[in-house]
Design a protein around this nucleic acid. Structure first.
Lengths: 333, 333
DNA sequence: CTGAAAGCGCTTACAG
DNA sequence: CTGAAAGCGCTTACAG
């Protein structure tokens, strides 16, 4: 157990080489305008020569504020997560902040752990895409004083900023499109369980159609295999003329349905039209491209980061809850 | 600019509440066995009462070693990244370490930035899945003293531990399988550019087949759209009887080819068999599932983390370079 | 078993 | 414009 770090250059060494005090080195790094140009040059030369990289831990500790923001996601199996991360990071970089990501791997205990960990590491704020039913964990984080921004949070109202998509509107948008395309016997298919997101999408469909006009079925889980299997079931309903439009709660399911329909020779969208609800880049692209509802991942990520930055910079105190309206993207299904 | 942190409990407060010194609180946290059980209980009660979370920055700074390991990936658009992260994190957690992820978004400057940043944050080690042509950036990190583990690095030999898949074997495996399935007119299709990974896979195919027995084509980029378009081109070659087996450098391309073939009524794998080379869970399993070469992402991630931990714990000094042999997974194509 | 003291590498008023 | 000094929140020998 001797994994000592190779002795790295620190500010004291830079100061010595440059012939100045540590305070001056610090000033060159943080407020170069307050330092004589010649001194700046000398210090920078020393920094360069010693390959000095400032210790960010000590910096944060001494300065009392961090220059990084944490993002916790539960997994990368949906393109939504990655898209949020990328757009959030872009915004953070503009503001001179770093982003560290943490993955809870769909494990609520791990999510809790990451929340504690990032708090302990003193990140300036945490953006969380919370797992369902993690209210307790979230409240604890807020209680601890973590600056938290919630994405697509669907639990009890919390004293915390958030950004989310209107999932009822998502379902309504999908259903309305099918109705306007002349379809009338709609079917909603979503994963089992009682996730609010899915329930909302279903509710949106119901609002647009009315209970009488629709049927509903369920897929076990979120896998492609299960989606394809259920697609075959739905195809048989379609063959019997019971269905002419399908709203799939997820794009993966939507593609499964399309494969099921085509397998028995039904034409998409002529015989049966299919709309997905989560614009998943990992789902598109069979020979038929899936029409879906854009959940504006990029806007969501950028907005969440903006809220985080506003809080960090002290520009805003009160929590701010933003609800975004989704957008239908018509493609080939 | 007044985004001050809410005053959080620190060790001094815990010590006061528990009626002990800060050193004792620290001992309760780090070496509970050295402390009287009653004292431990009192301190823990205070910790609980104050919702104290130890400042990890200060801990790392004072202790001289971190309890976290960074992973830098260039994106999450391939399931390989996520799988590596998950398995690496599992191994880290076993060892009581935390994992922070950073995404360079396919930007070599950003990758360099993350490398510097993580070094500055003092992470115990960094696992990097490097972008092509980032040797300079990597050497700099090593020079700085960062403990670096490279995954699938294909540049100049470096004084640094690494894990990689044998990509020549990947191509050979795919081609050999097709030959043994009775196919003889093989075609290799990969993305343009001169990535070593792709060249190696092609070389593996060549080794198995000989130049005379194969043709080669190229896709612009890695998108599904381009893959599908090229799939149509390849399908026309197949229709003319010039091809009866396709090795696709990526699974996304493989699926594009399958869609192209089926569009003109060719049967997969009877008329033309298709094998992918990167076992991408995001390549949609259509009605035909893609036979592919498993790049053992989980082993790669776990092994990389093991190498990192060994170094951190001081169990190993010399760099260790591991080459893993891929494994063919026969599915429906 | 417990605590006083020094120190990790930096920043930030405050003098000069 | 520059530096001496205190302090960020913790850990670690070292006494006791």
């Amino acid at each position: 157990m001797s994994g000592e770090r190779v002795p790295t250059a620190n500010m004291a060494m830079v100061a010595r080489v440059a012939g100045v005090s540590r305070a001056t080195v610090s000033n060159v790094l943080n407020h170069p305008d307050r330092v004589h140009p010649d001194t700046v040059a000398a210090v920078n030369a020393a920094i360069h020569q010693l390959k000095f990289v400032r210790n960010g831990l000590a910096r944060t500790l001494a300065a009392g504020h961090a220059n990084n923001i944490g993002i916790i996601v539960s997994g990368f199996d949906h393109s939504y997560s990655s898209e949020i991360i990328v757009s959030a990071q872009d915004k953070a970089i503009e503001a001179g902040m770093h982003v560290v990501i943490t993955c809870s791997n769909h494990d609520i205990a791990l999510q809790d752990d990451h929340l504690r960990y990032l708090h302990g590491e003193g990140v300036a704020a945490v953006i969380l895409v919370p797992m369902p039913n993690s209210d307790a964990s979230i409240s604890r984080a807020i209680g601890r004083g973590t600056r938290l921004i919630l994405i697509d949070y669907d639990g009890e109202p919390l004293n915390c900023s958030s950004v989310r998509i209107d999932n009822i509107a998502t379902g309504r948008l999908a259903a309305t499109y099918l109705l306007e395309s002349g379809k009338s016997r709609l079917h909603f298919v979503g994963p089992d369980g009682d996730r609010v997101v899915i329930r909302d999408r279903c509710r949106g469909v119901t609002e647009a159609v009315g209970f009488a006009g629709m049927s509903v079925s369920t897929v076990q889980g979120l896998s492609r295999e299960a989606a394809t299997a259920q697609g075959r079931e739905i195809a048989s309903l379609a063959r019997d003329g019971l269905i002419d439009g399908v709203i799939a709660a997820t794009d993966i399911i939507g593609m499964g349905v399309i494969f099921g329909l085509k397998e028995i020779g039904l034409k998409v969208p002529e015989d049966v039209a299919v709309v997905g609800c989560d614009y998943n880049a990992f789902a598109w692209r069979g020979d038929v491209t899936l029409t879906s509802v854009d959940l504006l991942s990029e806007t969501v990520g950028a907005t969440a980061m903006q809220l985080a930055l506003d809080q960090v910079k002290g520009r805003v105190q009160a929590p701010c809850n933003i609800v975004l309206q989704p957008r239908l993207v018509i493609r080939g299904s």
